[in-house]
């Protein structure tokens, strides 16, 4: 099993609903976020293009955050999802410094927090992650890459995609349809 997510930059409107939904679903404290929206504008008026991406932890297959964690709090869970065990985390911040995507933040309660792919609270109950299930443009796909029929496998077969900073060697599992 390999969980992955794909975000369609051609449909995402950058509304940040995914951010708000994640906050309320996962009780992310105000002032922090597990996902965020990036907008890149290219060209000069009136020859313009924008790429809009909803970003979050890439649940890297080769993740520096897991490697650098001194306690094993950061670990690979079911389906390759990268999780932090709260009561093993000492809050040293090494993983924050190690993530090239700025995907982690120090939770005010002390431990380090990040996107969980909603693994325990939703995915394992048969629901989509909160961000995926709220997105008004339905531009996010989630599922198991090992299952050729999962929505994410299907869309990645159909469309061109990219990952972020592949040269960092992290093997990200968040795909952007372009």
């Amino acid at each position: 099993m390999r969980y992955a997510m794909a975000v369609d930059t051609k449909k995402c409107v950058g509304c940040s609903d995914c951010v708000v939904a994640c906050q309320t679903e996962n009780k992310v404290p105000i002032g922090f976020c597990r996902d965020w929206v990036v907008e890149v504008t290219d060209g000069t008026y009136p020859q313009l293009e924008i790429e809009i991406r909803s970003e979050r932890c890439n649940h890297c297959d080769n993740s520096p955050c897991v490697r650098c964690c001194p306690t094993g709090a950061s670990h690979y869970a079911d389906g390759g999802v990268v999780l932090v065990t709260h009561d093993m985390c000492i809050g040293c911040g090494a993983c924050i410094a190690s993530c090239p995507y700025d995907a982690r933040y120090p939770h005010p309660d002390g431990y380090v927090d990040k996107c969980t792919f909603c693994l325990e609270n939703r995915v394992q109950k048969g629901l989509n992650p909160a961000c995926v299930s709220v997105c008004p443009t339905k531009c996010m796909y989630f599922g198991d890459l090992d299952d050729p029929n999962s929505s994410v496998s299907v869309i990645l077969k159909k469309r061109k995609f990219k990952t972020l900073i592949p040269e960092a060697g992290t093997m990200p599992q968040l795909y952007f349809l372009i």
């Binding site: 509304c15 940040s16 609903d17 951010v19 708000v20 939904a21 309320t24 679903e25 009780k27 299930s133 709220v134 997105c135 008004p136 339905k138």
Partner: peptide, 25 residues
């Protein structure tokens, strides 16, 4: 009150709120 989620049966939202509705809390 923790979250507000769209009603799947609703033709106005089809189960998906917009960011403002989600942030209605």
């Amino acid at each position: 009150i923790q979250k507000i989620i769209g009603n799947d049966e609703d033709p106005h939202c089809n189960g998906r709120f917009c960011p403002r509705g989600t942030g209605g809390v």
